[in-house]
Computed example of a mutant assay.
Amino acid sequence: MSGSRITALGHYQPARVLTNDDLAGLVDTSDEWIRRRTGIATRRIAAPDESVTDLATAAAGKALAASGLQPSDIGLVTVATCTAMDRCPSTAAQVAARLGIPSAVAYDLNNGCAGFTTALAGADHAVRAGAARHALVIGAEKMSDVTDWSDRSTCVLLGDGAGAAVVSADEQAGIGPVAWGSDPTRGNAVRLQGDWHPHFAQEGQTVFRWVTAHLPEIARDACARAGLTPADLAGVVTHQANLRIIEAVVRQLGLSEDTVIATDVVDSGNTSAASVPLALSKLTERREVPAGAPVLLLAFGGGLSWAGQVVACP
Rank of each mutant, 00 (worst) to 15 (best):
A47D: 14
N188E: 14
G130F: 11
A114H: 00
I40W: 06
E217Y: 02
P294V: 06
Q172D: 05
D148A: 12
T147K: 01
Q309L: 14
H197A: 08
P294Q: 04
V260H: 01
D232A: 08
D124W: 01
T206Q: 14
A231M: 09
L283V: 06
T147M: 03
I6C: 11
V236E: 14
A312V: 03
W149D: 02
G161S: 06
R98D: 07
V105C: 12
L76M: 11
L297N: 12
T53G: 05
K282Y: 06
V266H: 07
C82A: 12
G204P: 09
V27F: 00
H199V: 07
A56C: 08
L76N: 03
V249Y: 11
R44I: 08
A189N: 14
G176K: 12
V17W: 12
L192Y: 13
A179K: 03
W210R: 03
N20R: 02
L192I: 04
A84R: 10
A135E: 08
C155K: 10
Q70H: 08
G112F: 09
V27L: 11
V260Q: 15
E217L: 15
T117G: 05
W196M: 02
E285L: 03
G181Q: 13
E203W: 12
V211F: 07
G25C: 01
A119Y: 10
G308I: 00
R37Q: 01
I261M: 08
Q172A: 01
G176Q: 00
I261Q: 12
Q70R: 13
V266F: 02
G61C: 10
L278G: 10
I218R: 15
G130N: 08
G75Q: 15
D151S: 11
A66N: 15
A274W: 03
Q202H: 11
T29F: 10
H239Q: 11
I34F: 06
P290S: 08
V52K: 02
V178R: 07
P216Q: 02
H239N: 06
L253F: 10
R44P: 14
T83M: 07
A114Q: 01
L76P: 07
A279R: 06
V237E: 10
G235I: 04
A15S: 08
A273D: 11
